[in-house]
């Protein structure tokens, strides 16, 4: 199905079987940027819902604001959701996610792509959780007080403060997210965190060695923790200017072959205003050093590609149950295990 925002991308023909599966399964996209300027509730969210997505994790803030800006954006997005309570519902538990789907509403949770908005207060972990945040990543590309980001000059481990943050996150019961975080910082975190660890939106370094993609031993450690990795739809990380479903599937399949279908999900990272995103990337060169093949300006996977991915999984012989797990069942299981 073409869409006016769609790049000139050859579509995968989707069978009835795949379309039906995507419609009936609980489909969970674990990342949608939703900071100021991205929070387009009346176009993007209905489009995801029509494309079969039942739960979407909104990044209410990334590295661009501290506590004040983050809390303000959470207040705005909560008001945005409350004003559309016939269509949208903020979920806090796996049961609420299932209830949202049953009621025909799009469920949302919040995530934060940074830890700077804690501003030195461990107690803010609980505050953000109580306001709807269900995962937080440790560092966004650059170094922060917790550890190194994945694009940093250095690859150090966790700080003392970072260890305390992890402990508090574990106590509060939100998902600890290694996306955008440096290799050693994530490997150390997976050693010290007793429960499941996730990468909400990451591709495979073995398929394309971009600094934003994660290595096989990170994928294995994540799976060993009981966690999961959400495959990402940014052309830049896929090494595909058009962000084709086949390319996304190559990353997804690499992870499935490596650790099995119970540890893979979706974290598409769709951005409608791609030009805005790329301008931000150019303005923040310390976070976004040149990538191997320089695909700046490449496309983002579109919500309708969820059905195409379902088709490709079925064509590759994935069992229905495994496809359902990847589409959303794995994130639901982890919500049940970790959130409290």
């Amino acid at each position: 199905m073409a869409h006016r925002d769609d790049p000139d991308r050859p579509a995968v023909a989707v069978s009835e079987a795949a379309r039906g599966l995507a419609r009936h399964a609980l489909v969970w996209d674990n990342t949608l940027p939703w900071g100021p300027g991205y929070a387009d509730a009346d176009e993007t969210l209905p489009r995801f819902h029509r494309a079969g997505v039942d739960l979407i994790s909104l990044t209410v803030m990334g590295p661009e604001a501290g506590l004040d800006g983050t809390v303000r954006q959470i207040a705005r997005v909560r008001a945005q959701i409350a004003a559309r309570s016939d269509r949208l519902v903020l979920c806090g538990s796996a049961a609420e996610v299932e209830a949202a789907k049953a009621a025909g509403k799009l469920g949302v949770v919040f995530n934060l792509q940074e830890t700077n908005m804690l501003e030195g207060s461990l107690e803010m972990v609980q505050v953000y959780y109580d306001l709807g945040v269900r995962h937080m990543l440790l560092a966004y590309n650059a170094r922060n007080h917790v550890g190194d980001g994945c694009a940093e000059r250095t690859d150090g481990g966790l700080s003392r403060w970072g260890l305390r943050v992890l402990e508090e996150m574990g106590r509060v019961g939100l998902w600890i997210d290694g996306t955008h975080t440096g290799y050693r910082t994530t490997m150390e975190a997976m050693e010290v965190v007793p429960g499941p660890f996730i990468f909400s939106h990451c591709n495979a370094h073995a398929v394309y060695p971009h600094y934003r993609n994660i290595r096989d031993d990170q994928i294995k450690a994540c799976a060993a923790s009981g966690g999961a990795i959400g495959v990402n739809g940014l052309g830049e990380f896929l090494d595909d200017d058009l962000a084709r479903s086949e390319t996304i599937f190559r990353h997804l399949d690499h992870m499935v072959q490596l650790v099995g279908p119970r540890h893979v999900g979706l974290g598409l990272d769709y951005v409608k205003d791609a030009a805005r995103f790329w301008a931000w990337v150019r303005d923040n060169a310390h976070m976004w050093p040149p990538s191997p093949n320089d695909r700046t300006g490449s496309a983002f996977a579109q919500p309708e590609q969820v059905a195409e991915l379902t088709e490709l999984m079925l064509r590759a012989g994935y069992a229905d149950g495994d496809v359902r797990a990847i589409l959303g069942g794995n994130w639901l299981r982890l919500a049940r295990e970790v959130w409290r």
């Binding site: 809390v71 303000r72 207060s121 107690e123 803010m124 609980q126 505050v127």
Partner: peptide, 10 residues
């Protein structure tokens, strides 16, 4: 806002 939020967390 910032101070009040930090304090309510405390």
């Amino acid at each position: 806002l910032r101070t009040a939020t930090l304090y309510i967390g405390r």
